[in-house]
Design a protein around this nucleic acid. Sequence first.
DNA 1: TATATAATAAACCATTCGGTTGCAAATATA
DNA 2: TATATTTGCAACCGAATGGTTTATTATATA
Lengths: 105, 105
Amino acid sequence: MRRDIFQAIADPTRRAILVLIALHAMTPSAIAEHFDMTRQAISKHMKILTECELVKQEYQGREIYYQLEVDIMKEIVKWLVQYRKIWESRFQQLDQLLLTIKKKK
Amino acid sequence: MRRDIFQAIADPTRRAILVLIALHAMTPSAIAEHFDMTRQAISKHMKILTECELVKQEYQGREIYYQLEVDIMKEIVKWLVQYRKIWESRFQQLDQLLLTIKKKK
DNA sequence: TATATAATAAACCATTCGGTTGCAAATATA
DNA sequence: TATATTTGCAACCGAATGGTTTATTATATA
């Protein structure tokens, strides 16, 4: 089942995890120490983040270091840009309207 | 209960609604025509979007026109910027490392 | 005024979500 | 080799989510 990135960042714990590992790669156990929940709960969050390719794993013996996938913003930015275009065209229309009103004066 | 903007945009229907009304203000009934669900379901989505201040209402008789709140991206952008800062510092560190290696050669 | 229309609210329901506990697998270490 | 550690997986559970249908409120209109 393909997860959605917007759903992934909807959870505040997952956003906090992203901020945490943005500084440097961390193991699930190390991450779990920063939260008031079990290691297994963190593990589930990491699975979702991995499925959405927001983080990537680096195996080192029996430990797994999770680190931020730098292309994280791609899809979010894409979505925002879509808006910006629509807005810009709206503002242009507004500008032209204001200009027309000015001329009529 | 204060809603979270990330949770609001997590739902694909709500994102589609935002794109739809970005073009021009629309009534709930008009919006509902674009989706395969009841007007009441759309109404619930509009309530959530309103609570998060992603849209604003404009009363016109018994009709309510919903339009995009232009400041929509504020919180999302704030979050992204927070990341960019962390990334940039990471990349700087990487740059300095590469520079140090170069000098050693 | 009586009726139709636009919208929300309330009650309900199946599914998903985010947590838990318990267990299994793989790797490190005594 | 026996034991401890790191991790993920499965089963379970209560709460939230996203839809439905039914009822209510407010405004237009015949």
